[in-house]
């Protein structure tokens, strides 16, 4: 069996989530990858990749030509895999529609070639599903699979002729967020503050730490209700649901409503004065102490 992985390239490198997709796909057998636009060379250096299919002439990842191109090259593949990123979730279900198969999104565990585990109800339940489709189209959640490294492989590169783009979908422009801070829901690292941040002024102390880690900033409902942070920063049941690689909770007790919004993070760090705070029950690493002392130390140590 052979899997085809759709890669995403950023600043000339294969995105980490795509490298996780390669790692996941290698469970099925040989791995070929496909790159839309530039970046075939970076893809060829990924360990474990056999062939790189390069469609360099596709300059934008519009779903229509991308899915059409993929559909034209799926013969011989048992699985088509991508990261569950905005791009993967845009293109792969369309491909599934073209192939008349049911896609399997946000896979967090591979049981066997046909059987996958995926979260439903915002992660409040995990469904194990078995697919009867001949080609499995799946997106995988990056935080659930350790990525392959960037270097070590030497795959062959095969150039594809991309289909002529039709005018029915046109790229106009892209506006990247002006702030250097990533979006809360897609950030790799989230630094979150609770009522223990004391007031809005002290809450700002999270910014230098977030800058250092390239992290988004979140807040508990209590912190939002107290006016330390705006509503859109709220993480939890009634706010945003996040699952970053690293979640650092500072002065945040970990009310169950909050835990519901971040418990799927890969690594959780808690810093809190109160050793009984429920956040420690879910944290991989905890420090009990005054966060206003620890925060600057942490910044320095990074």
């Amino acid at each position: 069996m052979t899997a085809l992985v759709l890669l995403e390239i950023e600043h000339g490198e294969v995105r980490q989530a795509s490298r996780s997709a390669v790692a996941a796909a290698s469970r099925f057998g040989d791995v070929d990858v496909i790159v839309l636009g530039e970046g075939a060379e970076a893809a060829a250096r990924l360990p474990g990749v056999r062939n790189v299919l390069s469609a360099a002439s596709l300059t934008h990842d519009l779903a229509e030509p991308a899915a059409a191109l993929l559909a034209a090259h799926t013969s011989g593949y048992s699985h088509v895999v991508a990261a569950a990123s905005a791009g993967g979730k845009n293109i792969l279900p369309r491909l599934a529609g073209l192939l008349d198969v049911q896609p399997i999104p946000e896979v967090v565990e591979i049981k066997d070639e046909n059987t996958f585990v995926r979260p439903i109800y915002a992660g409040n339940a995990l469904a194990t599903v078995r697919s009867s489709d001949t080609i499995k189209v799946l997106t995988i959640r990056g935080s659930s699979f350790d990525p392959v490294s960037k270097e070590g492989g030497s795959a062959t590169i095969q150039t594809l002729n991309a289909p002529a783009t039709e005018d029915f979908s046109r790229f106009v422009r892209v506006e990247l967020s002006k702030s250097d801070r990533p979006e809360l829901e897609s950030a790799r690292v989230v630094v979150s503050g609770g009522k223990g941040m004391k007031d809005a002024e002290h809450f700002k102390l999270l910014e230098p730490l977030a800058d250092k880690l390239g992290a988004a900033i979140g807040a508990s409902r209590a912190a939002v209700d107290s006016g330390f942070a705006p509503n859109e920063m709220q993480v939890g049941q009634t706010g945003k649901i996040v699952a970053p690689e690293l979640y650092i909770a500072l002065g945040l007790s970990g009310a169950i409503q909050h835990l519901a919004g971040m418990k799927d993070s890969r690594v959780i760090v808690a810093i809190n004065m109160d050793p009984e705070a429920p956040i420690f029950r879910v944290a991989d690493y905890g420090i009990v102490g005054d966060l206003f002392t620890i925060l600057p130390e942490l910044e320095k140590a990074l």
């Binding site: 339940a125 418990k263 690493y285 009990v288």
Partner: peptide
């Protein structure tokens, strides 16, 4: 096309370790 084999609650996270300093973290 998909058969539901089972639906389960996500495993509860286990309590990790307490550290003493930022450097250790």
């Amino acid at each position: 096309r998909l058969t539901i084999v089972s639906v389960a609650e996500p495993a509860e996270r286990k309590e990790g370790v307490k550290l003493n300093s930022a450097a250790e973290l």
